[in-house]
Amino acid sequence: MNPETIRQMIEAGLPGAVAEVAGDDGVHFEARVIFTGFAGKLPLARHRMVYATLGDKMGGEIHALSLKTQTPDEAGAR
């Protein structure tokens, strides 16, 4: 598994999302995902939305994924 594939899966599963994914060992990754659909959702719900885009890759080909999830407004405030 590689960061680009994960990015594509997240963005395909959350249309309109922008994802940045890093990781260099093939199993541990970190991602920043910006998506309007996160508005009004708690962090756990946001993470579940991202995990759902990766399906059975989580816990298999992707051993660990550290997430930072933000709405566009939250991302712009930084």
Rank of each mutant, 00 (worst) to 15 (best):
N2C: 09
N2Q: 12
N2D: 12
N2E: 11
P3Q: 11
E4V: 13
E4T: 13
E4M: 15
E4H: 15
T5V: 15
T5D: 12
I6Y: 04
I6G: 03
I6C: 01
R7M: 12
M9H: 13
M9Y: 09
I10T: 02
E11G: 04
E11W: 11
E11Y: 10
A12D: 08
G13Y: 11
G13V: 06
P15G: 05
P15W: 06
P15V: 09
G16N: 13
G16V: 09
G16K: 11
A17Q: 08
V18E: 12
V18K: 14
A19I: 06
A19W: 05
E20A: 14
V21R: 04
V21M: 03
V21D: 03
V21P: 04
V21K: 02
A22S: 14
A22N: 09
G23F: 03
G23A: 06
G23N: 02
D24K: 11
D24C: 01
D25Y: 02
G26Q: 10
G26M: 07
V27A: 13
H28G: 05
H28T: 07
H28V: 06
H28C: 02
E30M: 15
A31H: 04
R32N: 07
R32K: 14
R32Q: 08
V33M: 01
V33S: 02
V33E: 02
I34V: 12
I34P: 00
I34R: 07
I34Y: 03
F35P: 01
F35I: 03
F35H: 15
T36E: 15
G37A: 10
F38A: 03
A39T: 10
G40L: 07
G40Q: 06
G40V: 00
G40P: 04
L42K: 13
L42N: 10
L42Y: 00
P43V: 14
P43W: 00
L44G: 00
L44C: 00
L44A: 04
L44P: 01
L44R: 03
A45L: 07
A45S: 00
R46N: 03
H47I: 01
H47E: 02
H47A: 05
H47M: 03
R48V: 01
M49Q: 06
M49V: 01
V50L: 02
V50F: 03
Y51K: 12
Y51V: 09
T53W: 06
L54P: 04
L54S: 01
G55R: 14
D56C: 01
D56Q: 15
D56W: 08
K57H: 13
K57C: 08
K57G: 00
M58A: 08
M58H: 07
G59A: 07
G59Q: 14
G59L: 12
G59N: 14
G60Y: 02
E61K: 11
E61C: 04
E61W: 08
H63V: 08
H63D: 04
H63E: 09
A64H: 05
A64R: 10
L65K: 11
L65Q: 05
L65E: 05
L65N: 04
S66E: 15
L67D: 15
L67C: 14
L67H: 10
K68N: 13
T69V: 04
T69C: 05
T69H: 09
T69E: 10
Q70M: 15
T71S: 10
T71D: 08
T71V: 01
P72N: 08
D73K: 14
D73E: 15
E74I: 05
E74F: 04
A75F: 13
A77I: 02
A77N: 13
A77P: 05
A77F: 09
A77L: 09
R78G: 07
R78I: 00
R78T: 01
